[in-house]
Amino acid sequence: MNESPDAHGHDDDDLRTMQIVFAALMGLLVLTVAVAYVDFGVFTLPVAMGIAVVKALMIMVYFMHLSHESMLVRIFAVSGFVSLGCLFAITFADYIARYPAS
């Protein structure tokens, strides 16, 4: 019996997927640096963070095998980020209202 759900064959498909993900991550790194030289105005930060979120999701879903894990594991994985989202939402609900945006 294998310990992990993704060890039941598909090994070569799996390697191919991981190679593609790695290549995509390197491509997105180049894109990250490239967009830093472009001025998107108020969208500069959202664009940079958008690319980072895509990279993070690729790492979590493929490298960290969340695509093969049970829903319970996925809920644990997401819990930290949801809590962090609450921290940001409550913090900035205060700061944005308190100071005029410059």
């Binding site: 644990f76 994985a77 819990s79 930290g80 809590s83 962090l84 921290l87």
Partner: peptide, 10 residues
């Protein structure tokens, strides 16, 4: 890892 996310998250 969730506690690590919050650790760095602060």
């Amino acid at each position: 890892l969730a506690t690590e996310v919050l650790f760095f998250g602060g």
